[in-house]
Write a protein that binds this DNA or RNA. Sequence first.
RNA 1: GCCCUCGUGGUGAAAUGGAUAUCACGACGGUCUUCGAAACCGUUGUUCCAGGUUCGAAUCCUGGCGGGGGCACCA
Length: 525
Amino acid sequence: MVREALEALDITPEDIKIDRPADASHGDFMTNAALVYGKKTGVSSRDLAGKLVAELLHVPAEEIDRIEVAGPGFINFFLTDAALAGAVTDAVQFAESGQGTLRDERVNIEFISTNPTGELHIGHGRSAFYGDVLARVLLHTGAEVTREFYINDSRESNQIRELGKTALGKGEQYKTPELEEKISSLNFEGLSEEEAGGRLAEAVQEGNRAFIEGVLGVHFDVWYSEDAELRATGANDTILARLKQENFTYEKDGALWLKTAEYGDDEDRVIVRSDGTKTYFIADIAYHDGKFARGFQVAIDVWGADHHGHVKRMQSVGRMLGWPNVPRTGADQPVIFIVQLVSLKEDGKEGKQTKKMSKRAGNVILLRDLVEEFGIDVVRWFFAEKALSTQMAFDMALARDASENNPVFYVQYAHARLNSILEKTQGLKEVTRTTSLFEVPSARTLAAKMTEFPELVESVATDYSVHALTGYATGLATAVNTFYRDVRIVTGDMYDANALALAMQAKGILKKTLDILGISAPEKM
RNA sequence: GCCCUCGUGGUGAAAUGGAUAUCACGACGGUCUUCGAAACCGUUGUUCCAGGUUCGAAUCCUGGCGGGGGCACCA
């Protein structure tokens, strides 16, 4: 509609934005068209906005109640009550069944992928919950999602060998009390370092898997063993042969190098060492190439910041081997997200200091301990509410404070409250309103907030900004509480049917938001 | 040294280049004979520094300062 009006004024509607305003008093939708084109046409923005509105009034649109010009030339649109009610119904429908923006797009998302050398610490929490929530969002928008955990268990890797040394009492690497316990419960007699390392890694991995599924509530569709899938099957050798054959490699100093620099990397990388062993990189290439061979259109990796130097080389291989770009966005593959590391904050004599978590220094906080102390809902919220780029300095004392007054309880409370009202109305007499419920401002605000839900989920599915979900949940809960204050549903032996209907629709959307976050929506608390 | 990344109230965070920078915690003050006060309302207080681009900058560009990460024939 705005576009038509612009064309009527000989303006090409390319760069304009049609969006929701930041503030409800600015209507249900807004456009900055007049601001963008005011200068180009030599007219002042406000004058152009006026002309635009005049044109807009000629376009029939029964959903629009009124149009206003505000500020430097924004045009704001206000929906009619009927249109808003319709949008609420659509939002509820979307919450119930999802929608197919990403219809059947095949997505592989790989996250956590901790090494089988120890337990998960709080740094892994970010990857775990980010990946899990993103997967839930993509599923809700119609994608076919595979959640995958890559197990670095190759018998050829140095870390397994080191782990083996520790198992056999010949080394100290990765040694923690938990690991020692595992070692003493296993029998390594007569095993080589590699075999012992493999056996210990298996035991560690088993424990981590039970924790991830049972305690974190994160479900993986595929547990991908590097050793079984890439080393044992010869996939590594196959990809190596292909790289050689296609002339992407050369020998230097007795090692085999990959020409990644030609494809955007800072320098070439070694893939076979001078002693003939393969580096981890070759396995990573085989692994990712395999993802596309398995039919995935999108491969998402969630990595820790200590791996961010690997992004370029991985994507340069993508260009080298011709991996397809992401269908909708055209982004390079694999799509890689870097989660900033979590440091620990301690109160020292010279004020607060942060330091890197270090297993050696024994100042690691295990994810297990965090969940035990605060509960999974609080922990999930805690990680989900921060953008990946945030550098968290974790302070246990601060976390305790935060957990007592955590917004997650606020949102859950709103849900429980709505449920309580529903129970209260059982057996009471239903009364229908004679005037529109939306005449009450907070009812209208609640409805408007609800209609944002589909757009929110769609946008998270597109730009992967998972943390927007917690912000939305809080906002919706606030709208619910304000509505509760202003609109009385139960009075004596009667209840307001229109108000109850809206409240129950809100409850549905609130619950869906929590579901996507993997957080419970209690009926009572 | 080079590369990447982040810098927002007292604290933790949010903000596709848009309107008065938002939210929570904290602090201070109000609101329960009425559907759950785990709530609601009010007060307090913020874009690291200096330039630039733009009608318009927390956001983009340049240069500083500060935090984190990476610069292996380790993963």
